[in-house]
Simulated assay, not measured.
Amino acid sequence: MKVKSILSEGRQIQLATELVGLGARLQVLEASTTLSRERLIKLYKEVKGVSPPKGMLPYSEDWFMGWQPNMHASLFINIFKYITEYTSVRGIDATIKSYQLYLEHVEASNLQRILSFTRAWTLNRFIDSKVLTMTACVECKGHFIAHSLDIQSNHVCGLCHVPSRAGKTKQAALEAKAREQCAA
C-alpha cells in the first residue's frame, strides 16, 4: 500500500493552481504534476470557472520561426537559460519563473504578449529534444531560436534584419487608428 503525503499533495495542488493561473493547458498540468486527470479538471474548473479547453497542444516548431514569435520565444529561452545557469531552480519551476519574468518584461515594455505558457513549455521540450537550438546573430551577437538542422554560420536575427511587413498586424493598425482618433 502506497502512503500519500499530505504535504506532497498540497504542493502538487499549489503547482497545478499556479500553472492554471498562467494559462497552462490540461496536458501541461498532467505532465507537470502527479495529480489525476479528474482532480486536475476539477481544479481547473475551480480556478478558471470554466472547463479546460479541448484539443491538441501546439506541436509545430515552425511557429517559433516567425519574426514576432521568434523574438518572444528567444527572449523567454534566454531568461530560462540564465535562471537555470545561475540559480538552483530547475524543471517546471524554472519554466514558471522564466515565464513570469517574460510577462513582466512584456508588460514593462508595453508589448503584446505573443508567447503563451503552453507554447513556452513546448519550446523547452523542443530545445531539450534538440529539434530547436539557440544560435548567435552574426551582427548583434544575441542568441535566437533556430532549427537545429539549419546552417547557422551566417544567422542574422529578426531584430538586425526586420522583415518589411513586421509590425503591420491588425492589432498595430487598430492601435494606430485609435491614436489618430485621439489626436483629432
Rank of each mutant, 00 (worst) to 15 (best):
T95M: 04
K168G: 15
Y82E: 06
A31Q: 13
L40K: 02
D62H: 12
Y59K: 02
V131D: 07
F76K: 09
C160Q: 10
L149G: 02
I145Y: 08
L103Y: 01
E30R: 09
T17W: 06
M56P: 14
D150G: 05
S129V: 12
A178I: 12
M71Q: 15
S129P: 13
L174S: 12
L159Q: 07
K81I: 10
H105W: 09
V50A: 03
A176Y: 04
L103C: 07
C140N: 05
T169R: 14
C157N: 07
A94D: 15
V106E: 04
E18A: 02
I41R: 12
S153C: 09
T34R: 08
E30Y: 00
I151T: 09
G142P: 13
E139I: 15
V138Q: 03
L43K: 15
K97T: 09
S51A: 11
P69H: 02
I151C: 15
V162G: 13
E104S: 01
A94Q: 08
K97Y: 11
H147N: 03
A24T: 01
M134H: 09
A172V: 03
V20Q: 13
R90W: 13
E85I: 12
S153W: 05
V28E: 00
D62R: 02
E30I: 08
S74R: 06
V106M: 15
M65K: 14
A184I: 05
G91K: 09
V20L: 09
Q14K: 06
A184G: 15
V138F: 00
N110P: 12
G167L: 08
L40S: 00
P58G: 12
H72D: 10
S32G: 04
S129W: 12
Q27V: 00
M71P: 09
C157M: 01
L22F: 00
L22C: 02
A24P: 06
R165D: 00
R165H: 01
T34N: 10
W67I: 08
Y86I: 05
P53I: 10
S74V: 13
W63G: 08
E107R: 02
V131R: 07
P58W: 10
V138K: 13
E85R: 14
Q68D: 04
L19V: 09
S153I: 15
E18D: 06
S51V: 11
V20I: 10
V50Y: 02
I151M: 09
R37P: 01
Q14D: 01
N78K: 11
L57A: 01
E38W: 06
I127V: 09
E85F: 11
I114Q: 01
S148Q: 03
L43G: 00
W67M: 04
Y59L: 10
E107S: 02
H72T: 01
S5I: 03
D93E: 07
L101M: 14
T33D: 08
Q100A: 10
Y44S: 05
A120D: 06
S116R: 05
Q152M: 09
L7K: 03
